[in-house]
Design a protein around this nucleic acid. Structure first.
Length: 896
RNA sequence: AGGCGCGUAGCUCAGUGGGAGAGCGCUACCUUGACACGGUAGAGGUCAGGGGUUCGAUACCCCUCGUGCCUACCA
């Protein structure tokens, strides 16, 4: 005897099924199977990470696709792994050890890296456990980490080849520097944030031996007064009448004793500030460009830790850049050279890892020459070798790729792939710098001069360098592995738009360069998960919803289904917990439908669970529900193909609840409880068939509950995971329209009962005048069901049915429904009752009216409460109208 | 400043050249042999506003307002 608990409780079964799936190897593709390959590589979460809503959405979508494709007959590889996340991880561990009063420099490079590995061993698998909680069907036997031996080999190979082809180079220029992380950052690792600063107006006096009057000066406007210590010129627009006479003259740079020239440059905006710009080539990107045009020197007055350098002068040296700003202002003020300041809104670059304000800094770094790589990537997208979904992202992609700058790939940190370059200290390369050596094996001597006096570059590669190789490095490249042959190019990449440039664009470039083929065919770009107000979730804002809490409260299935239902293309997700609760109810609904079905008493009921052929019914409800199922199956498959997960989820929801449960199951009850064994046979077959198909259809969305039902109700294969996905079911196209008449008849009778408040326990008579023979036949065939659903004792159907005196009417398509209410209701006392109710409602309206015209209430009550009260008010108004109508109807019936 | 979105029920959101929808919330009734995590009947919307195209616009085009994001600039 099969049994199901009264309601579904996820906590009992989720972990159980997950380990059964994993232990039975259902997540592993069979490479020898004669099936077409399908592959997704996971966007590797940071090892430091813990599951957030973004991951949850991302992973749910990938799992839906993977399970769907697996059931649809592909050999599916969903390859998981984690990213070493250079700066982020180093920061986390640095914070950890600082609690013990240690810093990494005291510890030394090797010992520090050792610490990180220890930390990774302990905490790095947390995120993996959390992915499993969601039900992710990844092949864990192929799990990768970006610092694995194999992936490191790929990184080495790629770097050396780029080096050999001169696509990487070393150069000294201004870069974004994080003084806290103590490393260079690439352009996109800088986040700009609008902050309110001050614009200071500073007087730069003309040098006294000039022919112009000595009291003359130029006023410059700056937000960063401390950088004036490194000023090399003041630039004005060549056409600016105010300054024309100054061009070529010298100014005394206050606080320094240096003299700097006034130069003319077209980049100066006449309208901004004073029209005169102080030029600090060492600490500003625009100024660097001006400096280059005018062959100015660059003096770095800020050191790499954000303090002032010796070049800033004895008075300022060692001060923090912001302390120095204060001091410079004070000093200028004392000298009478500060004209004033005003508030100024401007956006300032911050480190994307630690949020420290970045400092443009002159350093030597490694770069990837990107232009040729970008060209190929653009072409691949233009030629539709890669599809971006939704397509609108192509615009952003092209815009970014066409304007892309060389990629700074060296980082002055310790955690990551150390750059495989050695410098010979004995001989020089073409550029006059120490000779650079980059080989697949660590060199022991200089290949040019044979000197053993070589040292390795201490820097590591940008963490995104190894991520860029992920689609092929994880499959075994540079070795020619079976996995690589089978699964590259991968099928689809599922990712958020926030890493489109960090990651996706670079994978495309590297894939095309080193595999001569795109890394994936489709890129499905999903939305960001935001809070209910539309803000990004972040710890500092305190608006984070923890996916694990959702799973614990509602179960993974309900949570996953919610994410799927929210995942409309091209729109951000504003997460609301109410929806999760709603979908948990949906699961319970499904659970109870299953309970209804297996509780049916019938001698052969067990045999129906092994049904594989679709039933061939002759009765309308069965034809109708099979037709609805066939159409739902078709739509779900189509929507999944088009990455329309929300539509697919809604298709199933609608079918299960509002068609299968609301109508079909109700329609089966007369047969199940009163029908003959033969009639019952047909219906039971159909019930089992629908249930079986439905849970398979739902499995990619709700893996756990469907597996549980599959194993409880059906025993025909080991797991629902390896059963085929429904498709191509037979349709009964006429059934829809025919069933509609039955539904209308039922709805019409119910409507009258509801409106007139006829007790549900009262069995009534109804008459239906049909306006076509077809409708008459259909309704007569379904009579027992209609009677049962409307709790009638008798229904007359026919073309010649007349409206009896004193009956209420409901008009539907091709039929008129009459219910004689004389005798059902004691009309006089019903009118009395309604009058009394009317008085009650009148009072309630008066009270609410008073409340809603109370200004204190409107001012002080929360909006939601006010809205609710207003809604109540409207509702009461409407009800009073209805009651008046009904009183009128009853009076009329009474007089007939 | 430029680009890309969004503005539909009280809230969170789907949707479409012809019928305005879902979940939650709200009102009334109902413990009807799957389910109160339920059922039935209801209320609630100038589909932001204004123009245009069309026989017909919530949907397509233009403008305005509001709002979000991205890129650039910000001395």
């Amino acid at each position: 005897m099969i049994e199901l608990k009264k309601s579904y409780s996820p906590e009992d079964i989720e972990d159980k099924w997950y380990s059964i799936w994993e232990n039975n190897g259902y997540f592993k593709p069979d490479l020898n199977a004669a099936k077409s390959p399908f592959c997704i590589v996971i966007p590797p979460p940071n090892v430091t990470g813990s599951l957030h809503m973004g991951h949850a959405l991302n992973v749910t979508i990938q799992d839906i696709i993977s399970r769907w494709k697996r059931m649809s007959g592909h050999k599916v590889l969903w390859l998981p792994g984690t990213d070493h996340a250079g700066i982020a991880t180093q920061n986390v561990v640095e914070r950890e050890i600082s609690k013990e009063g240690i810093d990494r420099h005291k510890l030394g490079r090797e010992a520090f890296i050792e610490k990180i590995w220890t930390w990774k061993a302990e905490y790095g698998s947390r995120i993996i456990h959390q992915l499993k909680k969601l039900g992710a069907s990844c092949d864990w036997s192929r799990e990768r980490f970006t610092l694995d031996e194999g992936l490191s080999k790929a990184v080495r190979e790629v770097f050396v080849r780029l080096f050999e082809e001169r696509l990487v180079y070393r150069d000294s220029r201004l870069i974004n520097w994080c003084p806290r992380c103590h490393t260079a950052l690439s352009d996109i690792e800088v986040e700009y944030e609008e902050i309110e600063g001050k614009l200071y107006y500073i007087k730069y006096p003309l040098t006294s031996n000039s022919e112009v009057q000595t009291q003359d000066f130029i006023v410059v406007a700056t937000t960063r007064p401390e950088t004036m210590l490194g000023d090399m010129a003041v630039a004005v627009h060549p056409e600016d009448e105010r300054y024309k006479n100054f061009i070529g003259k010298n100014l005394d740079l206050p606080l320094t004793g240096r003299k700097i020239p006034v130069i003319a440059d077209l980049s100066v905006d006449l309208a901004f500030g004073t029209g005169a710009v102080k030029v600090t080539p060492a600490h500003d990107f625009n100024d660097e460009a001006i400096g280059k045009r005018h062959e100015l020197e660059a003096i770095s007055v800020i050191a790499k830790d954000g303090s002032m350098s010796a070049e800033a002068g004895q008075r300022y040296k060692g001060l923090d850049r912001y302390q120095c700003r204060k001091k410079v202002i004070e000093d200028l003020n004392e000298l009478g050279l500060l004209q004033g300041d005003k508030k100024h809104l401007h956006s300032v670059g911050h480190c994307y890892r630690c949020k420290t304000i970045i400092e443009p800094m002159q350093t030597i770094q490694w770069y990837v020459k990107i232009e040729s790589l970008a060209k190929e990537a653009i072409k691949a997208v233009e030629d539709k070798k890669i599809r971006l979904i939704p397509e609108q992202w192509e615009n952003n992609f092209f815009a970014w790729m066409k304007d892309i700058k060389d990629w700074c790939i060296s980082r002055q940190i310790w955690w990551g792939h150390q750059i495989p370059v050695w410098y010979c200290l004995e001989c020089k390369g073409e550029d006059g710098m120490p000779l650079k050596i980059s080989q697949r094996q660590d060199p022991t001597e200089c290949p040019e001069c044979g000197s053993k006096n070589i040292i390795r570059d201490p820097d590591v590669l940008d963490t995104w360098f190894s991520s860029a190789l992920w689609p092929f490095s994880t499959l075994g490249w540079p070795d020619d592995t079976e996995d690589l042959k089978t699964f590259y190019p991968t099928s689809v990449l599922v990712t958020g738009f926030d890493i489109l440039f960090f990651w996706v664009a670079r994978m495309i470039m590297m894939g095309l360069k080193f595999m001569n083929d795109v890394p994936f065919r489709d890129v499905y770009i999903h939305a960001l998960v935001r809070d209910s107000k539309g803000h990004k979730m972040s710890k500092s804002k305190g608006n984070v919803i923890d996916p694990l809490v959702m799973i614990e409260k509602y179960g993974a299935d309900a949570f996953r289904f919610t994410l799927a239902a929210f995942a409309a293309q091209g729109r951000d997700v504003r997460f609301s917990e109410d929806r999760v609760e709603g979908y948990r109810h949906f699961i319970n609904k499904l659970w109870n439908a299953a309970k209804y079905i297996i509780n049916i008493q019938h001698p052969d009921v067990a045999s129906f669970s092994e049904l594989s052929e679709p039933p061939k019914p002759s009765t309308l409800p069965e034809k109708w529900i099979l037709n609805r199922l066939a159409i739902t199956v078709e739509e779900v498959n189509r929507n999944l193909t088009n990455y329309r997960f929300n539509d697919a989820a809604n298709n199933i929801y609608q079918f299960v609840w509002h068609e299968f449960c609301d109508w079909y199951i109700e329609l089966t009850k007369p047969v199940i409880y009163q029908g003959s064994d033969n009639e019952k046979n047909e219906v039971i077959k159909c019930l089992f068939f629908i249930l079986e198909k439905t849970i398979r259809l739902l499995h990619p969305f709700m893996p756990y509950v469907t597996e549980e039902l599959w194993n409880t109700v059906f025993k025909n294969s080991e797991s629902i995971m390896v059963s085929p996905y429904p498709e191509g079911l037979p349709k009964y196209s006429d059934a829809d329209a025919e069933m509609n008449y039955v539904i209308n008849a039922v709805a019409g009778i119910r409507s009258i009962r509801g409106e007139l408040n006829i007790s549900p326990s009262l069995e009534i008579k109804a008459d239906i005048r049909t306006l076509s023979n077809e409708v008459e036949k259909i309704l007569k065939d379904s009579l027992p069901a209609i009677i049962k659903l409307t709790r009638c004792k008798e229904i007359n159907i026919g073309a010649d049915v007349k409206r009896a005196k004193g009956s209420a009417v409901s008009v539907k398509e091709k039929m008129e429904i009459y219910i004689p209410i004389e005798g059902l209701l004691d009309i006089k006392s019903e009118i009395d009752r309604l009058q009394k109710e009317k008085t009650k409602i009148d009072d309630a309206i008066a009270v609410l009216n008073k409340k809603l015209s109370n200004e204190d209430f409107l001012k002080n009550a929360p909006d939601a409460i006010v809205q609710k009260e207003k809604a109540k008010f409207d509702n009461l108004i409407h009800r009073i109208g209805k009651i008046e109508e009904n009183i009128k109807l009853l009076k009329q019936v009474n007089s007939e």
